[in-house]
Design a protein around this nucleic acid. Sequence first.
RNA 1: GCCGGCGUAGCUCAGCUGGCAGAGCAGCGCAUUCGUAAUGCGCAGGUCAACGGUUCGACCCCGUUCGCCGGCUCCA
Length: 641
Amino acid sequence: MRIIFPDSSAKEYEAGTTGLEIAGDISPGLARNALIVRFNGELLDLKEPLYDDGSIEILTFRDEEGKKALRYSCSHVMASAVQKLYPGTKLGIGPSIDDGFYYDFDIPDFTGISAFEEITAEMKRQVKEDIPFIRKEMSFEEAVALFDGKGEKYKIELLDELRDTGESISVYSHGDFVDLCRGPHVPSTGYMKHFDLLSTAGAYWRGDEKNMMLTRIYATVFDSSKNLKEHLSMLEEAKKRDHRKLGSELGLFTIGNEGGPGLVYWLPAGTIVREELENHWKKAHVKAGYQLVSTPHIAPVDLWKTSGHYDYYRDNMYFLKIDKGEYALKPMNCPGHIIIYNHRKRSYRELPMRLAELGMVYRYEKSGVLHGLMRVRGFTVDDGHIFCTEDQIVEEIQQVVRFALYFLKIHNFGYSIELSLMDREHTDKYAGEPEEWSKVELALAKALDEMGEEYRSVPGEAVFYGPKIDIKMKDALGRFWQGPTIQFDFNIPQRFNLTYIGNDGKEHRVFMVHRALYGSLERFIGNLIEHYSGNLPGWLAPHQVVILPITGSQLGKAEELESILTDSDIRCRIDDRSETVGYRIREAETGKVPFMLIIGEREAGSGMVSLRIHGSGDKGSMKLDEAIEIVMAGCRRPELP
RNA sequence: GCCGGCGUAGCUCAGCUGGCAGAGCAGCGCAUUCGUAAUGCGCAGGUCAACGGUUCGACCCCGUUCGCCGGCUCCA
C-alpha cells in the first residue's frame, strides 16, 4: 500500500503495517512520542493495522487530538483505580477537557480528597505494569449485555442514545477494566507516567440539575514531567494572583460575612482604583459621543412588566413594597434608559443617540455561584444603549467594537470575537421577524468584516431578543474571560414602542443596541488584579509614591516633595515611622507601590532624590525634577481614543 | 440551589484520646535615626462562626443555621 506523509512524500508499505511501525520507520523518536494516528482523516489507534493506500499523520502530544487521546486514556486508568479501591462504583463519563480530564463516578462511601493518595498509587502501579489498551467493536446488544452485567446504569443510558445515532459501538479495556469509548487510545497504560489528581467536585449527571449528583475527580496528564510541572506551577501562579487574596492583602475590598454574601464593600484603596477606571471611562464615553445619564436603583414593577423582565427574569430580582405599590431593584439598566429616550418624541436628527451610565444593578444569584468580585449580587454595569436608524447600524457597531478594543488594549488583554446568531431551525424562540434578524446579522458580520477583525460565528447562541457580538479577553496567564458584549435588541423597542420621526415626517421604529465594555466593573477589576498580579499600572495604583526620609532630619525635604507631587495630582504619602529604611522599603514593595522616593543626607543638601521602582529596584540618586518626570510619566492616565 | 471540604486573634496557622486558648506577622508602647525587601525589648489582642444537644466538664463529639472554599447548574 502507498502511504503519503504530511510533507506529501510517499512510501510503499506492506498491507497490515501499523501506524506505530510506520512511525518507527520514520524515526525512533517519533515512534516514542507517537500517541495516535490520523489515517485518511480518521483517528486511529497506533496498533491498528492499515490496509489501504492513504495519507497518514502521526499525532503526538503536540497535536490537539493526541493530547486528548492521552487524557481520556488516562481517565480510564483513573476510573479503573477508583473502581478497584471502591467496589460498587458506577461509571459516569470521563472526557478530556482543556488542560486535563475528569471522570464522573457514583462512588459509595467516597472519602474525598484523602483518597487521592491511594488512587494515585494504584494508577502508578498500572502505569508501571504498562497494560495494553485493547479496542473491541461490538453490536449494540452485546454492549448493553456487557455493561448491564456490570450494573453500569449510566453507561446503559449513554448506549441508549448511541443506538439512535447508528454509530458503531466500541469499548476499550485494559486488564479487567472495560469502558465504553469511541477512542482512539494510546497503546498502553505506560504512556501516562506524568499525571496528577487535582480536585474533586460534585457534578450533575449529564449536566442537568434535576439529575443525581456524581463525584467528579479532576486530573491532568502530560507527555513529560517538565510539562506537567510547568502546568502545576501555572496553577500555583494563578492561585497567587487570586484577586480575592490580593484584594484583601492590598486592602481593596471586603465581601461576604456580615456585609452579606455577594455584596462588595470597597475600601479606600479599592475605591481609588474604581474611581480612576470610572473617570477614564466617562471621559472616553463623552469623547465618543455618548451622553451620560443616571437612573434610580429601584423602579415600579409595571416598568419591569413592560420590559419583560418581570416575566423572564423575576427569579433573579429583588422586590420591595413602597406605599401601595410594588417595586423592584433594577437587575438591568435598560428600562431606565428607555424612559429617558421615550420621555418625549425623538427626531431622526437626534440619532444615533448614545446613552451611557455606570449603573449599579442587583441580581439574585444562587449562593453557590458567588465568587469574589467575579460573581456577586450587586454590581456596576458600564452600560450603554444606542438608539439608531437601520442605516446607522453598521457604523455604530464598528464604533462600539473599536471602542471596546480600545479599553482592552490599554491593559494589553488579548481577545477573540464571537458573533452569536439565531438558531434558524427554531425561529419562533426569538423576538422580532426572521427577515429583520437576517438584516441585522448581516450588518453585524459586515461591520466586523470591514474592520478586518477575525471572528467566529456561532448559530444558536444568540439571546432571544437579538444577535450579539461577544469579545472574550485573554489575560496574562492565557485565560479567557467574558469581556465586552454588544447586543442587538428587537424586543424592547417593540415592547416600549420606541420610535423616532423620520425626515418623511412619519414614525419609525428605532433600532437599539445594548453594550457593556467592562461588563461589570467589579468583575473587570477582579480580572485586572489577576492580570497584573496586583501590580496595577501607575494610574490605577491606590498609592503611587511613598516618600522615605532616611532619618528625621530629611522630613522637611520630604514634605516639600510631597506637596509638589500632590499639586501634580500624584497620590503620595510620607512614611517617616521610626523603622529602618529596609523595613519601610519592604513594606512599600509588598504593598506594590510603584514608586519610592528616598531622601537621605546625601540627597537632601543637593536637590537630589533616590528613586526606586517597584519590582525593578534601586535606580540611584538623580535630580528632583528628573525623578518627578519619571513618576509623572509612570502615573499618566491612558490617552483617550 | 446541589455534591464535597473548611470556619481558632486583623492576617497566616498550631492546639494530642474531651480537662485553664498558643505562635509568627500586623497593632500599640518604649528604645533606636538607620542608605534600598523584616532593629530590639515590652504590652495588648479570643463568646474557638452562631445556636442547640450529649457530658461532671466541649475549640474538640452530635444536630441546626450562617459564612467561605473547590466544582456542578446558572451568569456580567
